[in-house]
Simulated scan of single mutants.
Amino acid sequence: MYELEKVLEFLRENLDEFRYGHSIRVMETAVELAHIHGVDDKKAEMAGILHDSGKWKSREKTLQKVQDWGIILSEEERAEYNLVHGALSTYIAKNIFGIEEEDVLNAIKNHITGRPAMSDLEKIVYIADMIEPARNYEFIDDFRAMAKVDLDRTMYEILNENLAHLIRNDRYIAGTSLEARNYYLKITKQGEIK
């Protein structure tokens, strides 16, 4: 069953020092955003702390866990290694820590790519992952301020920035990210799209 102290112990044992600290910062940022936006802060805590729980110290160990636990990867997860930890983290939340809340599991699963029509909890975890205090990139201060006011607009702006970053670095782009970007474009720019 989920207990924060047990999760922290699991993360200390299985993640590197940076990823452990990042997980705590994402959890704290998610809880702060949950308070602002009227979302269950316990769910934000669970999803925030566990979002990267499947990002093991090595690629080999990550892929071995996928095999050991019989996780079926999607075509996109097989094409882009960075997407694998979403499925693995969701498995850990459900099967090791007994989390059954679909919203929490979806927030963990979709924190990498986003998706159209995300719940507020999903948006909060996605955004928290991108604006936690150790992040430092162009527009970060704008995104932090925006996140306190409008989750949909923040999703749109961060998705745009992520897609531009992936293109600049010649990286794989998940179709779900493109779908999410276009979805949030439509709902934030209603009446402006020609």
Rank of each mutant, 00 (worst) to 15 (best):
A107F: 06
K123A: 06
R78V: 07
E101R: 12
K109E: 10
T113K: 08
L88R: 01
D141A: 10
A87C: 09
R135F: 00
I108V: 12
E76F: 09
G114Y: 01
A79V: 09
N82D: 15
D150A: 07
K94W: 01
E101M: 09
Y91L: 14
S89C: 01
Y81R: 10
E102Q: 14
I140M: 08
I96W: 05
E77F: 09
T113W: 04
L121E: 00
S119H: 08
I99R: 02
D103C: 09
P116T: 04
A134N: 11
R144C: 08
E138Y: 02
G86D: 00
N136R: 13
A128W: 00
Y91Q: 03
N110A: 10
E77R: 06
K148R: 15
G98P: 10
D103S: 14
L121K: 04
D103Q: 12
A107R: 03
L83Q: 07
I124N: 00
M146K: 11
K109S: 11
R78Q: 12
I92P: 12
I140V: 14
K94L: 07
R78T: 08
E132K: 02
T113C: 04
E101C: 08
P116V: 08
L83D: 08
F97E: 03
A134I: 11
I112A: 12
I96A: 07
I124C: 03
T90A: 15
R115F: 00
F139A: 14
A93F: 04
M146G: 05
M146D: 11
A145K: 12
F139R: 15
D141L: 14
E80C: 14
K148A: 04
M146L: 15
L105T: 09
L88Y: 05
A87M: 03
E122F: 02
V84L: 03
V149S: 09
I131E: 10
G98L: 07
A134P: 02
T90D: 05
D150N: 15
L83K: 07
I127W: 00
A93C: 09
G86L: 06
T90E: 15
F139S: 14
S119K: 06
A134K: 13
Y126L: 11
L105V: 11
F139I: 07
I99G: 10
M130L: 13
N136K: 11
S89E: 01
E80T: 07
H111R: 06
A147D: 10
A134Y: 13
F143E: 01
V125D: 01
H111D: 01
K94Q: 15
A87D: 06
G98R: 08
Y91T: 05
I108Y: 12
A107Y: 05
N106Q: 13
T90H: 06
N136L: 13
V104K: 12
D120Y: 02
E76W: 08
A145G: 10
G114T: 04
L105F: 03
A147T: 05
N95D: 11
V149D: 13
I127L: 01
N106Y: 13
G86Q: 03
F97G: 05
E102W: 00
D103E: 15
I112V: 15
E77K: 13
Y137C: 10
A87T: 03
M146Q: 11
A117T: 10
A128F: 04
E100I: 11
H85N: 02
D103V: 02
R78G: 08
H85T: 00
K123V: 07
S89V: 03
L88V: 14
